[in-house]
């Protein structure tokens, strides 16, 4: 069964209006006055002597769509792990805007300040319905007492319906998420990311296992999200990267090898050397 994503024309992402309100989550908002949403500086992570990240420096502008490429083992996923609090670096710093030190926060706190992550392997809550998956991800207070007595209001229901529309899963809304196809699970994850309404989206290999049509729709969605959100995409599929990229960062052995437009990095001598062995 193929996924039909929002067949009614128009740039799909634009239908989804981020509220920009983060106060409902009781979490601090990042200070974006310098127009940089993410600072990653001098990060080094080593596992048993192997440096997965080696003095990594990365700056993401507010509203930017950044693609990160690199061969296997270049440190792409480890970088996301550091930003989202899963892995603690040996040295370096990571700031969200001017004021929020990511290295001092736990995973849920980082999610609450506005960083959402889509995993490489889609992990949805298999026993919950598609609708409930979106409900759980929704930007709302996630404190125990609130959640114990929480009821969906009309606005929240509308948002879930809207996201169901965007990800093309209206007909599957009451079905078990575990029963979805791989591509549909990918879309559900993207939908959960949209429900979180994060300021910064970290998207790990979004089009793995998708059909060309699905890939195209994903590209369209990610492009439309940029501007209102900042988006960082890690991807192997070069055609996909070319179709969405404005700025590309090439990682190699845990640090940045090159940065620039797709053409610039493709003609970069070191990149050629690493990728093509020239």
């Amino acid at each position: 069964m193929s996924v039909s994503i929002n067949s009614g024309g128009g740039p799909i992402g634009l239908r989804f209006k981020p509220t920009g309100r983060r106060h409902s989550t009781n979490a601090p908002s990042p200070d974006l006055s310098h127009n940089i949403i993410l600072y990653v500086e001098g990060i080094t992570v080593s596992f048993d002597g192997f440096k997965a990240l080696n003095d990594l420096n990365l700056y993401i502008e507010t509203g930017e769509l950044r693609c990160i490429i690199g061969p296997n083992g270049a440190g792409k996923t480890t970088m996301m792990d550091v930003i989202t609090g899963k892995t603690r670096p040996d040295t370096g710093s990571a700031w969200f805007g001017q004021t929020i030190d990511l290295l001092g926060l736990t995973e849920p706190e980082i999610a609450q300040v506005g960083i959402g992550r889509k995993f490489q392997k889609p992990t949805v809550f298999a026993e919950h319905s598609v609708f409930e998956n979106l409900e759980l991800a929704m930007a709302d207070s996630k404190r125990v007492w609130h959640v114990l007595f929480a009821k969906l209001n009309g606005e929240q229901r509308d948002r879930i319906d809207e996201v169901l529309q965007i990800i093309g899963l209206q007909d599957a809304r009451s079905g078990r998420a575990g029963a979805l196809s791989h591509g549909q699970k990918q879309w559900l994850e993207i939908g959960m990311l949209l429900m979180q309404d994060p300021l910064l989206l970290l998207v790990d290999e979004p089009v793995a296992g998708m059909t060309p049509q699905e890939t195209e729709r994903t590209a369209e969605l990610l492009v439309s999200l940029a501007g209102k959100h900042s988006v960082v995409v890690v991807e192997h599929d070069m055609n996909f990267v070319r179709s969405i990229a404005r700025t590309v960062t090439v990682l190699h052995e845990g640090h940045v090898l090159a940065e620039g437009s797709m053409d610039e990095v493709q003609n970069h001598p070191r990149v050629k050397e690493v990728y093509l062995g020239e």
Partner: peptide, 19 residues
């Protein structure tokens, strides 16, 4: 539903913001 989410995918539940 959060409890069941923790049961089925604890790490994922953290990354959508639940303590």
């Amino acid at each position: 539903r959060v409890l069941q989410a923790i049961r089925d995918a604890e790490g994922r539940t953290r990354f959508i913001g639940y303590k």
